[in-house]
Design a protein around this nucleic acid. Structure first.
Ligand code: FES
Ligand code: FES
Lengths: 132, 132
DNA sequence: AAAAAATGATACTATTTTAGTATCATTTAA
DNA sequence: TTAAATGATACTAAAATAGTATCATTTTTT
């Protein structure tokens, strides 16, 4: 089971790099220092920007900086942006198995499972990964 | 996040069908009654057979039957057969993030997460899905 | 005003994983 | 001996993930 996508991986490294740089950096600079493809990382940081984790400034001297304290960002915050969440109470099968889908316990179990995943991911801060 | 793969989906339906048929059935018969492609289901049930959930008999009148009581088979038992498990203590990132990977907490958190997933899936029996 | 250096938006392509097919071999009952 | 089943395995198709390309917009510097 793959829990961390490539996008989340890059996003986290980029955040750590920006933090090390004193809180602000540009795609070009980040990519020079970590092994990520420039346009891909750009797409990723744009998503972090649109979702309030970073904020961006255009033009010369611009780049990305934190919009939320580094120490408060969790793995869940990042993962959430790149993975589709299961709708509560929707059947995980292509066509429902249960004859009385109304009484089905699995549907809720499945979203409980997802909740647990996020609960765990929420307990890990990006700053916990940085030089532990 | 997708938790139930197509193979798991088909496997569960097939098990329920076999159970309804009195404990034994053949691929041809199962496929006539549920909407799964014959050679794909065959590959799936072969895996259940090799892993002690079903047992098979060849030749005319042959087919698949339970090797383990229907009521004891859990969603975890089936999922387990079709998804690669994370190795305990392996870094979830392409290249490790932590400078001192020895002290890394995330590595273990990630396998804890997987354990929780299986814990939840273990609590759902296939028979729970059958006409709940 | 113009050029340069940054991000924003978005459509396209490649790679990998998941899903499904085809085929030949083996077993067993009629 | 043939038909009806599974075993093994290599191949192909579809979907999801990963990555590229390009043009637009903003901002600073000259
Ligand atoms: S209705 Fe889908 S598993 Fe119960
Ligand atoms: S060593 Fe990989 S996240 Fe810590």
């Amino acid at each position: 089971m793959k829990i961390i996508k490539k996008e989340v991986d890059y996003a986290i490294r980029a955040l750590i790099f920006i933090y090390e740089k004193g809180g602000k950096s540009s795609i070009t600079e980040i990519c020079r220092n970590m092994n990520a493809p420039n346009p891909f990382l750009r797409k990723i940081l744009q998503i972090l920007s649109k979702n309030g984790i970073l904020k961006s400034t255009k033009g010369i001297g611009g780049g990305f900086e934190f919009n939320k304290p580094f120490g408060e960002i969790t793995l869940a915050d990042i993962t959430y942006l790149f993975t589709e969440k299961i709708k509560k109470g929707s059947c995980p099968f292509k066509t429902p198995i249960c004859s009385n889908s109304h009484k089905c316990k699995l549907k809720f179990k499945i979203s409980e499972i997802e909740d647990k995943i996020y609960e765990q991911l929420s307990s890990v801060k990006i700053s916990d990964l940085w030089r532990p």
